[in-house]
Design a protein around this nucleic acid. Structure first.
Lengths: 248, 248
DNA sequence: AAGATGTCAGTTGTCTTACAACTGAACAAC
DNA sequence: GTTGTTCAGTTGTAAGACAACTGACATCTT
């Protein structure tokens, strides 16, 4: 608490258009505008917010692309029904498993079950776009909350991304943070979700007979340059997790 | 094929900004621009496409919001890595269960297990925003592919939306299409996904002992005015379904 | 020689002004 | 009752000007 935050911008770095887009979204909410209700005209809004018309139009265009408003040339802009499907923290948000679990109220303890370097299976090689002969790090972990296993996960990382010896690296923390420290920060992923039961040998090896049905999320994570940096299979205990999303 | 399509607009109704957004997205693709590559300047693009700068800027702003490009003031616009996470037909697309199943190659036969009018449970009443005393239609169905049960579903519809007697309505078709005919077309939904096993009484009643783990999608569907029109619980057979999505 | 400061060119961000295009309502003509 | 015209209000597009930012380079100070 004596630590001073030096990163304190004196000015909002966002463009006026983006700022106004958010202000207008708030305004629609706070003024209780319902689907079909008409927004103030461009002229009224430029006066109200003391902003030029082109900047305002950019903001309105963004709102339109967001699906919040629809526009009829010559008639006006109207609130759409999209606010009916507000979803907090949807499954489509990219975040670490640890952060996600904390959001559900689970402060998990991360147990490393195994760490190894190996030749990747063909699917892993394809997902991580590895050349023949390239190796991967295979990280097997279990996350527990109050001694109850909640998440079993397998992560594959191209060996070349993490220099040094495997046992010199701390594996019980966030893999995303680890990769970030080596300048390969994962930023997005292509994922899929399925309902499965844990594979038998994992059940036997780790005494997970009562895990029950699992929500399996399989994803390939990419860094800012579009390079795949992790392939993960994450089994969430079905009784403790459900993920939300909007469909449009 | 003798039928003439009368809806043939002579002019693209989309604004220039939206058209140009799509043209630029195509250009990024066809010119093989990679993450980090720089786009032509605004000046170059206005000349290339013979469009005014404000319209061009609106288009570029939309591309930025789409995550296709990032902008640095004074420096230029750059392609982001978003194309790394192209997902066909994500879970976030709103469509009927029948259409979704067909996409997986399953032409399902829809069996009506039960249809009834009842007083809703508190959760259903809340989700459908019903007043005290309002009733719902409860529709229980099973979808089979080659005689194998793939999807068990429960749908709740406000009674007032579908006039007439229950047994006069054809329930084995698409519920979305049925509601559309009564001017309550579902257009979007708020949903969640979990891994479960079928409830015991359903297993026993319908001989579904070998269904295995199920991917349960629970969703409330809204029409164009934001009014909730269906609350559904859809159990997908785990062995036959997995849904994709992008995380950003 | 190294570090700090200032200048400049190129680019994006914002603004002002003007005219074009569209929509629905109102009214006139048939 | 139907069709055509006009009008007011609104969005769509354009041209021109200046502000703000960034990195590269030059100059000054130690």
């Amino acid at each position: 608490m004596g630590k001073r935050d030096l990163d304190e911008p004196l000015r909002d770095a966002r463009t006026l258009a983006v700022q106004l887009r958010d202000r207008l979204a708030d305004l629609i909410r706070t003024e209780g505008l319902k689907p079909g209700d008409r927004l103030p005209t461009e002229s009224q809004l430029t006066q109200r917010f003391r902003i030029s018309r082109p900047a305002l139009r950019e903001a309105l265009k963004l709102l339109e692309q967001d699906g919040v408003i629809s526009v009829t040339h010559g008639l006006g802009r109207f609130v759409t029904a999209n606010s009916a499907v507000q979803v907090d923290r949807p499954i489509t948000v990219f975040e670490s498993v640890t952060d996600m679990a904390r959001h559900y109220g689970y402060d998990t303890v991360n147990k490393v079950l195994s760490i190894a370097e190996e030749t990747p299976a063909p699917l892993i090689q394809q997902q991580l776009r590895l050349a023949d002969g390239e190796r991967v790090i295979r990280l097997e972990r279990l996350r527990l909350h109050n001694d109850l296993p909640l998440i079993y996960s397998l992560d594959y990382v191209p060996r070349g991304l993490l220099p040094g010896r495997l046992f010199d690296i701390e594996w019980s923390g966030s893999l995303l943070a680890l990769l970030e420290r080596y300048r390969h920060q994962p930023r997005m992923s292509a994922a899929s979700v399925a309902a499965v039961t844990l594979p038998d040998e994992i059940v036997q090896r780790n005494d997970l007979r009562d895990f029950g049905p699992a929500l399996l999320i399989t994803e390939t994570c990419f860094d800012g340059t579009g390079t795949p940096v992790v392939h993960a299979a994450v089994y969430h205990r079905g009784s403790h997790f459900a993920f939300s999303f909007a469909r449009k």
